[in-house]
């Protein structure tokens, strides 16, 4: 049983690394990088669920009986697209923040905000 779940655990470790990058780093670009790793690992988790031992890619062909599950693939296609959309918007915000504040470090932005208050 432990071996069979090993795959998921690796994914969880990856996921948590991404999550850690998001919440611990103060650089705005780094946060977004972490976010994409976090999301990519969730995608891997979904895809793992769809795998069938001995199956092939879900493209119908004569003579093949077992296919992997196409549904997670579809969901993750959607999710990848959503992910890149978020990252693109986030980066655009970072560019604007840099223009407005002259920095992309969370703590420095907060300092500047507190000063102007």
């Amino acid at each position: 049983m432990l071996v069979s779940l090993f795959n998921y655990w690796i994914v969880i470790v990856l996921m948590m690394m991404g999550f850690y990058i998001v919440i611990s780093h103060s650089n705005l670009i780094k946060k977004l990088l972490g976010l994409s790793i976090f999301q990519a690992s969730v995608f891997i988790m979904y895809i793992s669920m769809g795998k069938v031992e001995g199956g092939t890619a879900p493209i119908l062909e004569e003579g093949i009986k077992t296919y992997s599950n196409p549904l997670p693939h579809v969901l993750i296609l959607t999710a990848i697209v959503v992910g890149i959309a978020t990252v693109a918007l986030g980066l655009a915000l970072v560019v604007r923040i840099h223009e407005a504040y002259g920095t992309i470090e969370e703590n420095e932005i907060q300092e500047k905000d507190n000063k102007s208050c």
């Binding site: 996921m15 999550f19 998001v22 705005l28 946060k31 976010l35 976090f38 999301q39 969730v42 988790m45 979904y46 669920m49 999710a79 978020t86 918007l89 986030g90 915000l93 970072v94 604007r96 923040i97 407005a100 504040y101 932005i109 905000d113």
Partner: peptide, 26 residues
């Protein structure tokens, strides 16, 4: 200009929230 920063914060928090929801649904 704080609107940008507010939006960025919301983006990070919101995306973490959405990803958690995605894990839950998964």
């Amino acid at each position: 200009r704080k609107a940008l920063w507010a939006s960025y914060q919301y983006l990070i928090m919101g995306t973490i929230g959405a990803t958690f929801i995605l894990i839950g649904i998964g």
